[in-house]
């Protein structure tokens, strides 16, 4: 009888130990992934060449969205590959509309992972891929909106079919992001800087941002009857070589983490 109790007690202790080990490995929280076109997309802005631009829809298709804990922290300026000690991924491809929700909308929630290991997710990577269905089918980025200047108005649709892969370090902004505590929720953000394409009248013209931006004037120059509906092939044939190359170069710098720059493949 005593022997049986002893065996039972030892077995119970073994099971409890296993459970405790499992609990220790499972110290988790929730990590949310946001996409943000910033106020530039939500509220519109004036381009470097004076066009007042507003956006009705900005569709962007995201895949392989992965947040990482890296030590040492990943440096997007270096040629080193991102090495994740801990990683959390969204297991889906989705198209989001960065202009959704009006002027004061919050960044778009792309998805969340509820069993993310605690710690600081200080690196983020994602792909911009061509959508297979929906309003952006066939394109990785579709920009729809209206540009106005001097009583001129142009409804534009600019469609990009190039695919990009962004590797970014830690979010740079008003607050630090990606720090999950046990049972808590943190978020990381894929930020897209559309002022890089059109420039920003509120930024000095000699600033790098405006120097490297194409502006809207080249697009206005190829619009017909107040309409512009183009893809990259159209733009390659209708824009000047210099303007087209400027657009190609700047598209790869669209992805950021807050104000932090990313490496793009």
């Amino acid at each position: 009888m005593r022997k049986g109790i002893l065996v039972l007690a030892i077995t119970m202790l073994f099971i409890i130990s296993i459970m405790l080990v499992s609990c220790g490995g499972g110290v988790v929280g929730t990590l949310q992934f946001h996409a943000n076109g910033e106020d530039f997309v939500r509220q519109g802005f004036v381009s470097k060449d004076g066009w007042s631009i507003s956006f009705s829809n900005v569709y962007i298709t995201l895949a392989e969205v992965t947040a990482c804990q890296t030590d040492p922290p990943y440096d997007p300026h270096s040629d080193a590959n991102m090495k994740c000690d801990v990683e959390v991924s969204l297991d889906k491809v989705c198209t989001v509309d960065l202009a959704e929700g009006g002027e004061n909308a919050l960044p778009i929630l792309v998805g969340e992972v509820q069993n993310a290991a605690v710690g600081h997710y200080n690196a983020l990577s994602w792909e911009m891929v061509k959508a297979t269905s929906g309003p952006a089918a066939g394109y990785s980025l579709v920009i729809l909106g209206t540009a106005e200047k001097d009583n001129q108005s142009i409804d534009f649709s600019i469609k990009v079919d190039e695919e990009y892969e962004y590797f970014c370090g830690e979010y740079v902004g008003d607050e630090r992001k990606g720090m999950i505590e046990e049972g808590g929720t943190a978020d990381v953000e894929m930020t897209f800087h559309f002022d890089h394409i059109f420039g920003d009248a509120e930024t000095p013209m000699d600033n790098t941002l405006n120097v490297s931006a194409i502006g809207f004037e080249p697009f206005a120059g190829i619009a017909e009857g107040g309409k512009l509906d183009v893809n990259m092939a159209d733009l390659q044939s209708r824009l000047s070589l210099e303007d087209y190359q400027m657009l190609v170069d700047i598209l790869s710098t669209l992805g950021h983490v807050g104000e932090g720059h990313c490496h793009c493949d």
């Binding site: 409890i16 405790l20 609990c23 220790g24 110290v27 290991a117 710690g119």
Partner: peptide, 17 residues
């Protein structure tokens, strides 16, 4: 640095077990 790990109570209980 590091992430995850066990709480003090878990460590004590595991040691006792």
């Amino acid at each position: 640095g590091g992430t995850g790990g066990y709480t003090a109570i878990q460590i004590i209980l595991m040691a006792a077990c």
